[in-house]
Simulated scan of single mutants.
Amino acid sequence: MELFFDLVYVFSIIQLSHFLLAHQDWLGALEAATLFAAVWWAWNYTAWATNWLDPDHASGRALMVVLMGCALLMAVAMPEAYSSRAGLFAGAYVAMALIRAGYMAILFRGQRMGRNYAQLCAWSGISGLFWIAGALLPEQRVWLWILAVLLDYAAPYHGFWLPGKGATPMESWPLRGLHLLERNQQVFIIALGESILLLGGMLVDHALDTGIVLAATIGFCLIVSLWSIYFVQLTEEGEHRFAHGSDHTKLARAGLAYAHGVMVCGAIVVAVAIEMMVAHPLDTVHVPTALVAVAGPAIFLFGSTLFHRVMSQGMRPAYLAAVAALALWGFVAVKLHLAGLWLGAGVLVVMAVLALSGRSKGTWG
């Protein structure tokens, strides 16, 4: 049932990629980031909920189907989320949040978990006011929705504190860390799958000349490098920490809810960068293309750094050095008026070096 639920996020990630492709400016990037934050948080809270309910029970299945329908409506509304379908996007997101939290509060009524979800529901209702207000006020929409996102993401770190109720302690949210880690791995695979879908679509729609084939090869190898860094260098580290650690809830909040979201966001931006480079492999690089090409891997590596920091209490300087190298290469590509192929090749070299030289355990030299 959980895998079936994830199917709608294949479509959601495609919609996010297409939105960013259609809005290649600073405002578009800000709007896309806000949409992604909502999409990710809706998936994240649902993944956490399945730690405490049985998604294969009849009522659990019914809840998952309803939530899946809400997520589908969010994805459908995404292309016009800041125009004609703002109400549909905000309404589906708020409904998803309130239905999920309300169901869990009722299911566990009289128990500590019921109180926890009642307070989460209250926070969802507060942020929901800003989501709905943004849908009703076009001129302030993006800022109201950013405020709503900040409230949603800040809530867990404040323990869903409410006047007269206090906060919900971390130890009152016991969960199966390894199961939640597996769920995050699955959604990361979905994000990489979006890159494959976009790359394949480009090859179907274009003549396979030398430039296209070379750009596609670079794009494919870039996808492989992300997979390698994630599953070879980070996954074993996370599994080991969850298998031997006792603070699963704290680890999952920082390492999965937040750090994984950043990594998934980076993978989506990489998919957009690959499509842009494959579409115009021999054209001179302009600032938007360079920014997207550099930002995708950099966001992914920033999330990877956060994940490693949470799981091992250490840093991987090579990741931060790679971000600096990517930024420098993007600047050079624009200044020297290089073709998209050269931009992509440089990005691939940086990511391939990380993928080939990294180790699943230990530190970087």
Rank of each mutant, 00 (worst) to 15 (best):
residue 17 S to R: 00
residue 17 S to K: 00
residue 29 A to E: 07
residue 33 A to C: 04
residue 42 A to W: 05
residue 50 T to I: 05
residue 52 W to Y: 04
residue 52 W to S: 00
residue 53 L to A: 07
residue 54 D to L: 02
residue 57 H to C: 11
residue 96 M to T: 05
residue 99 I to H: 01
residue 101 A to K: 00
residue 103 Y to N: 02
residue 112 R to L: 13
residue 118 A to Q: 07
residue 121 C to F: 14
residue 123 W to V: 09
residue 125 G to A: 06
residue 140 Q to F: 14
residue 146 I to V: 12
residue 159 G to P: 07
residue 170 M to W: 05
residue 173 W to T: 09
residue 178 L to E: 14
residue 178 L to M: 13
residue 179 H to A: 02
residue 185 Q to L: 08
residue 188 F to L: 01
residue 192 L to N: 00
residue 196 I to G: 02
residue 196 I to S: 02
residue 222 L to H: 00
residue 223 I to W: 04
residue 228 S to N: 11
residue 230 Y to A: 01
residue 238 G to V: 01
residue 245 G to Y: 00
residue 248 H to N: 09
residue 249 T to V: 10
residue 253 R to S: 07
residue 257 A to Q: 05
residue 262 V to D: 00
residue 269 V to E: 03
residue 281 P to E: 00
residue 282 L to T: 10
residue 287 V to E: 10
residue 287 V to T: 13
residue 289 T to K: 11
residue 291 L to K: 04
residue 296 G to S: 05
residue 296 G to W: 10
residue 302 F to P: 03
residue 304 S to L: 03
residue 308 H to G: 13
residue 309 R to L: 08
residue 310 V to S: 01
residue 313 Q to A: 10
residue 314 G to D: 10
residue 315 M to L: 14
residue 322 A to D: 00
residue 328 L to A: 15
residue 328 L to Y: 08
residue 334 V to Y: 13
residue 337 H to R: 10
residue 337 H to G: 06
residue 339 A to V: 10
residue 339 A to E: 12
residue 343 L to C: 04
residue 344 G to C: 10
residue 347 V to K: 02
residue 350 V to D: 06
residue 353 V to D: 12
residue 353 V to T: 15
